[in-house]
Measured scan of single mutants.
Amino acid sequence: DLRKKIVDLHKSGSSLGAISKRLKVPRSSVQTIVRKYK
């Protein structure tokens, strides 16, 4: 699940930009998912 991957990467200390590059999703999507998770 993409959300879980993003949250896991964020927990392990990756920046939003790094996560978005790695998973090839827009940075804004990463930000939204991380914000919802918090």
Rank of each mutant, 00 (worst) to 15 (best):
S28Q: 12
L9G: 01
H10G: 01
R22N: 09
S15W: 03
G17D: 10
K24I: 04
S14N: 12
G13W: 00
S20P: 00
L9Y: 05
K5M: 14
V25T: 05
L16R: 03
R3T: 11
R3P: 06
L23I: 04
A18G: 06
K24W: 05
K36T: 07
V34G: 02
R35V: 05
Q31L: 09
Y37F: 11
K21S: 07
K5Y: 10
D1A: 13
S29G: 06
D8N: 10
K38V: 11
L9F: 06
I19Y: 00
D8A: 14
G17S: 14
D1G: 12
V25Y: 05
V30H: 03
K4W: 11
L16N: 08
L23K: 01
S28R: 13
I19S: 01
K11N: 11
K24T: 05
P26V: 06
L16T: 09
V7N: 04
Q31F: 06
R22Q: 14
D8I: 12
S28V: 08
K36F: 09
R22D: 06
V25H: 03
V7E: 07
K11Y: 07
S14T: 09
K36V: 07
V34I: 14
K38D: 07
Q31C: 13
V34Y: 02
S20A: 14
S14V: 15
H10R: 04
Y37A: 06
K5H: 08
Q31W: 08
L23T: 04
I6G: 00
S15D: 04
I19K: 01
S14H: 15
I33E: 05
H10E: 02
V30R: 04
S12H: 09
L23E: 00
H10Y: 15
K36L: 12
I6H: 00
V30W: 02
L2W: 10
Q31S: 12
S15T: 09
P26R: 10
L2R: 07
I6E: 02
L2E: 03
K21Y: 05
K38A: 11
R27A: 04
V25R: 03
V30K: 03
R27E: 05
S29L: 15
V30F: 01
V34F: 02
K36Y: 12
G13C: 05
T32L: 14
L9C: 09
S28G: 09
D1P: 10
S14M: 15
K4F: 08
R35D: 09
V34A: 03
G13T: 01
Y37K: 03
D1F: 14
L23A: 00
V30I: 10
V34Q: 01
K5D: 04
V30Q: 02
K21H: 07
R35G: 07
R35H: 10
V34D: 02
L23W: 00
S20C: 08
L2K: 06
V34M: 07
L9A: 05
S12G: 10
D8S: 12
R3Y: 15
A18W: 09
S12K: 12
T32H: 13
S20H: 04
S15Q: 03
R3C: 14
S14Y: 15
Y37S: 05
A18I: 07
Q31R: 15
K36G: 08
S28N: 09
K21T: 07
I33K: 04
K5L: 14
R35M: 08
T32I: 14
Y37L: 09
Q31V: 13
L2D: 02
K11V: 10
S14K: 13
G17A: 14
L9W: 06
K5F: 11
G17L: 11
G13L: 02
S28Y: 11
V34L: 13
L16I: 15
V25W: 04
R35F: 06
K36E: 13
K36H: 10
I6R: 01
K24L: 08
G17T: 15
K5Q: 12
L16K: 04
K36W: 14
V34N: 01
K4H: 10
L2A: 05
I19Q: 00
V30D: 02
S20N: 02
H10D: 02
R27K: 12
S14G: 06
S29W: 15
R3F: 14
D1E: 12
S14R: 10
R22A: 15
V34T: 04
R22Y: 12
S15H: 03
S20R: 04
G13Q: 01
D1V: 13
S28W: 12
D1L: 13
V7W: 14
Y37I: 07
Y37Q: 03
V30C: 07
K5N: 07
P26M: 05
R22P: 00
S12R: 12
H10C: 11
V34R: 03
D8Y: 13
Q31E: 12
S29P: 02
S12N: 11
K11R: 13
K11M: 12
Y37D: 03
S20M: 06
S29K: 15
T32M: 13
I19M: 02
R3W: 15
L16G: 03
G17E: 10
G17N: 15
K21P: 00
R3E: 12
V34W: 06
L16M: 11
K21Q: 07
G17W: 10
L9Q: 04
R27G: 02
K21E: 08
V7G: 03
L16Q: 06
I6S: 00
R22M: 15
D8R: 11
A18S: 11
P26L: 06
K21N: 07
K5W: 13
K4R: 12
T32A: 15
D1N: 12
R35S: 09
R35E: 10
I19N: 00
R3S: 10
P26S: 12
V30S: 03
S15R: 04
S20E: 02
L9N: 02
I33P: 01
G13A: 02
P26Y: 05
S12F: 07
H10Q: 03
V30T: 01
R27D: 01
L9K: 00
V30L: 04
P26H: 08
K24M: 09
L2S: 04
L9T: 01
I19V: 02
V7R: 06
R27W: 10
K38N: 09
H10N: 03
K4P: 03
R22I: 15
Y37E: 04
Y37G: 03
K36A: 12
V25D: 00
I6K: 01
G13R: 02
S14Q: 14
Q31H: 07
S28A: 10
S20F: 00
T32V: 13
H10A: 07
Q31T: 08
T32E: 12
L23P: 00
V7A: 08
S15P: 05
S15F: 01
K36N: 10
L2H: 05
D8V: 10
G13D: 01
S28P: 06
S15I: 00
D1W: 15
K21V: 07
P26D: 06
L2T: 06
K24F: 06
V34S: 02
Q31K: 14
S20T: 05
R27T: 05
R3H: 12
D8Q: 13
L23M: 07
L2G: 03
I6T: 02
S15L: 02
K38E: 10
I6N: 00
T32Q: 14
V25S: 04
L23V: 03
D8F: 14
D1M: 13
S29A: 14
S14P: 02
K11I: 13
G13E: 01
L23S: 00
Q31Y: 09
V30P: 01
G13M: 04
R35I: 06
G13P: 01
R27Q: 05
A18H: 09
K5I: 13
V7I: 15
I6A: 03
V7F: 10
T32R: 15
I6W: 02
A18M: 10
G13I: 02
D8W: 15
K11E: 09
L23Y: 06
K36Q: 13
V7Q: 06
V34H: 04
L9S: 03
A18C: 11
T32W: 12
S12W: 08
G13H: 03
L23H: 00
K4C: 11
A18T: 09
S20I: 05
